[in-house]
């Protein structure tokens, strides 16, 4: 029997890297169901690598990944999606030559057997992200950066995630759009989806239940409650 846990996702003493270059040196976080967790840190700190291990896109060389208390280290990307861990990749990576609607169709690949659910979920996505509904027949490549980010999130939602990981959602977007995207993330969590945001933007802490500060492949601070709004504390973390 796996030990019972209230955590949705746990990364425990994770080690991983690319070839001979180790990036994570004992990376640990725990995120509870329905929380918005923010991984904050500088470029190259290992945030993206950690979530890629979670989603099966990068192999762990040590430590473990637990999902709903179940050990899933080494799970394939497709396997993770089946289980409900879905990643919205850095740089959005929408399918530019396909329409908005077709992008959502690709998103629903693992759910394609359940037409009724897919239809309902698509309607839901258009409701949550009304700008996509206006542009459903437009090629994704012709959308603005903010709209592409919304589409990437919508595409992720079509895979029926319990945990949605959004890698660098705010990169290259206008502040007003960033706020909108963060609000969407917050609303998703209110609906019950666990959201993990990988961010360099401190503003993301405003919607967070928990913040993890990442530096050189380890989590150096975990912020909760009032700490999330403590500007002095956050500044000192960044400046080391």
């Amino acid at each position: 029997m796996p030990e019972q846990t209230k955590e949705m996702v746990e990364l425990v003493d994770l080690r991983a890297g690319y070839g001979a270059l180790p990036v994570l040196h004992g990376f640990s976080i725990a995120v509870a169901p329905g929380e918005v967790a923010v991984l904050l840190g500088l470029n190259g700190a290992g945030k993206s690598t950690a979530v890629k291990v979670l989603c099966g896109a990068v192999a762990a060389t040590g430590g473990s990944v637990r999902y709903r208390g179940e050990e899933i280290t080494g799970c394939s990307t497709a396997g993770c999606v089946q289980k409900g861990i879905v990643m919205v990749p850095e740089g959005r990576r929408v399918f530019g030559g396909l329409s908005v609607e077709r992008n959502l169709q690709v998103g629903s690949w693992t759910q394609r057997g359940n037409r009724g659910w897919v239809e309902a979920q698509r309607a839901h996505v258009y409701e949550v992200l009304p700008r996509l509904a206006e542009r459903r027949d437009q090629l994704a490549g012709t959308l603005s950066g903010g709209e592409q980010q919304m589409l990437a999130i919508g595409r992720g939602l079509m895979a029926n995630p319990s945990v949605l990981v959004i890698d660098e959602a705010s990169l290259g977007l206008a502040p007003v759009i960033v706020r909108e995207i963060l609000k969407i993330a917050r609303n998703l969590a209110e609906e019950g989806t666990t959201v993990i945001l990988v961010e360099q933007n401190v503003g993301a802490l405003e919607v967070a239940d928990v913040g993890f500060f990442v530096d050189q492949g380890v989590v150096t601070a975990t912020l909760r409650g009032k700490e999330l709004a403590d500007g002095e504390l956050i500044r000192s973390l960044y400046l080391g």
């Binding site: 896109a57 990307t77 497709a78 089946q82 399918f95 396909l98 077709r102 992008n103 690949w109």
Partner: peptide, 18 residues
Amino acid sequence: VALLATAEDPFAAELQGV
């Protein structure tokens, strides 16, 4: 559609479980 998506961006397609 999954084939077209794979042709465009295999990594992004894989992240959707394709």
